[in-house]
């Protein structure tokens, strides 16, 4: 399959502090790809290098099979982590201007997307009059308005309420179905677990995991129990580690623990409403990888 993004052996340092260390990964055409890792892992630096806002110290980046950033900028849509729009400009004027800079000015498309995002009635308002979540949606529209081949979304879910979160997720999945290549960068690893086919996981500037989500998960085995319960969890034999939040818990089992024994042990003191044996979450995998 053709590759939309090829990153090979890219390094970058600021003031002799290494921020990205020898990173390599590919993104195939039409793929929804997750670039994940905690804050400060170097995700945004990689994205800025993909966009030719900054240049790598060493290594090579190819976008849409071209090493020339001027040729590809028009075909990329970008939602930056730090939102930025002209505060005194109206919504529609902002979109038209940013579209013009991509050589693809389409007011019709902008209006269509505004309607889709339930923002049409705000089109003549100034950006400064809108709430943070609304501005976020406008920024997303600006990123996809010019019908780009590659869409780069840096923390697309931050600051959104559940309704808008759902709206944005649906939008991303739909764009994926249309054949767009999408790169989602986020520290909320669980958010992308079900959306992305493959991920690249970063920690302190280096890559720690790379591959398809299912493959990575199976590599870590089915050693996790997702549990919903009422009552108390007391030291249960066979559980190595437990993350409890309220009535929900994620239990990581010891290597040869029997899930049936664990279930019995829990049932002694608590009412169980859900008991699911599964692979660990990406969060848990990340912690495990980093601890090793």
């Amino acid at each position: 399959m053709e590759k939309t993004v090829e990153v090979s052996h890219v390094s970058k340092s600021f003031n002799s502090q290494s921020v990205v260390k020898d990173i390599s990964f590919d993104i195939a055409q039409g793929e929804i790809f997750g670039l994940i890792g905690p804050n400060g892992a170097g995700k945004t630096t990689i994205i800025r290098m993909l966009l030719d806002i900054i240049r790598p110290d060493s290594g090579e980046i190819k976008i849409l099979s071209s090493g020339q950033p001027e040729e590809t900028k028009d075909m990329i849509g970008y939602l930056p982590e730090e939102r930025g729009l002209y505060r005194r400009l109206t919504v529609i004027d902002s979109l038209v201007y940013l579209g013009a800079l991509k050589n693809k000015q389409s007011k019709t498309k902008a209006l269509e997307l505004l309607e889709r995002m339930e923002m049409l009635q705000h089109k003549d308002k100034k950006l400064s009059e809108l709430s943070k979540g609304m501005q976020q949606k406008i920024q997303l529209i600006a990123a996809i308005c010019h019908d780009p081949q590659l869409i780069i979304l840096d923390e697309p879910f931050s600051g959104l309420d559940p309704v808008n979160m759902k709206l944005v997720k649906e939008m991303i999945l739909e764009l994926g179905k249309e054949g767009k290549t999408i790169l989602i960068s986020t520290h909320m690893m669980d958010q992308v677990e079900r959306m992305c086919g493959r991920i690249f996981m970063m920690h302190r500037g280096g890559g720690v995991l790379y591959g398809s989500v299912t493959e990575i998960k199976s590599r870590f085995g089915k050693n996790t129990v997702f549990l919903e319960f009422e009552g108390e969890l007391k030291n249960i034999p066979g559980v190595k580690k437990s993350n409890i939040s309220g009535n929900y818990a994620e239990l990581i089992l010891e290597d040869r623990a029997d899930t049936q024994e664990v279930l019995k042990a829990i049932a002694r003191d608590a009412r169980i409403s859900r008991f699911e044996v599964s692979s660990p979450s990406l969060n848990e995998i990340f912690i495990k990888v980093v601890e090793e």
Partner: peptide, 8 residues
């Protein structure tokens, strides 16, 4: 940042 993702 937005502008630089579109122009040099």
């Amino acid at each position: 940042e937005i502008l630089l993702s579109s122009v040099s």
